[in-house]
Design a binder for these strands. Structure first.
Lengths: 133, 133
DNA sequence: CTGAATCCACCGGGATACTG
DNA sequence: CAGTATCCCGGTGGATTCAG
């Protein structure tokens, strides 16, 4: 029966639980690029598309809609011919960019270390892990 | 037709944009939880499983392997019966936790604003965007 | 120019069962 | 206790086409 499992944790999803939910705002494949690109200033649809290598029209649209819905950016339609649409970070969007900065910096600073770790891990065939007795 | 010949584009992103690649380390569904949980200290497999609500054995294993491969944590096997396996953050893993802190804080600070933005967006049926002429 | 719509391939990830 | 092995479903996202 209850061996030593009295360590029940009644709050597995801690206060930071919704942090995941928020992470999902930028954890998809393209949001980070879009947000980063808008960090330089307002952009139009095709400007964004050109600035983000490999993104499809569909995914750019989907990504922009999601970010707009979450209040990260605004969409402004210029009623002219041909139509222009300008995307711009909201104040909250700007603070998000700032909040991601440490992570970006961490990544650039640890790129080589991560590559090395991967090489080593793959080299040893994942067979060998440190063991003690 | 002849789709077999078009084997290309492993990763076309620009030079400095490996940030995405790094984000993928924690952008999956569970890594953040695992890393956060280990931030409190070393944990064993089932301890982690219990502390992370809803995670399956499979996904915990997969997530741990990925983080280990990337040098974020170490896996230590205690050769005893029954077997014990301890997971612990590497120094690099600890710095990662620190780098994610601003994002976590941002999320908690903007939760309500995001909810409000979503409600408003959904309320207006996404029909109305600001337009100028 | 800026999208919406459709079709579809891929794989992340859940449930379950088995192993050392 | 700490995994591995299968099966399988749904979401993500690419390519393409149509529309305002």
């Amino acid at each position: 029966m209850s061996t030593a499992a009295d360590r029940e944790l009644p709050l597995p999803p801690p206060a930071g639980c919704r942090a995941r939910e928020i992470l999902e705002i930028i954890a998809d494949k393209w949001s980070l690029y879009v947000v980063a690109s808008l960090g330089d200033g307002p952009r139009r649809f095709n400007e964004l598309k050109r600035s983000i290598d490999g993104i499809s029209q569909r995914m750019l649209t989907v990504t922009l809609r999601g970010l707009e819905r979450n209040g990260i950016l605004t969409r402004t339609v210029l009623n002219v011919m041909p139509p222009h649409v300008s995307y711009e970070l909201t104040p909250m969007g700007s603070t998000l960019v700032a909040a991601t900065a440490p992570l970006i910096e961490w990544s650039t600073r640890n790129l080589s270390a991560i590559d090395a770790a991967r090489l080593e891990y793959d080299a040893r065939g994942a067979r060998r892990t440190s063991s003690r007795r």
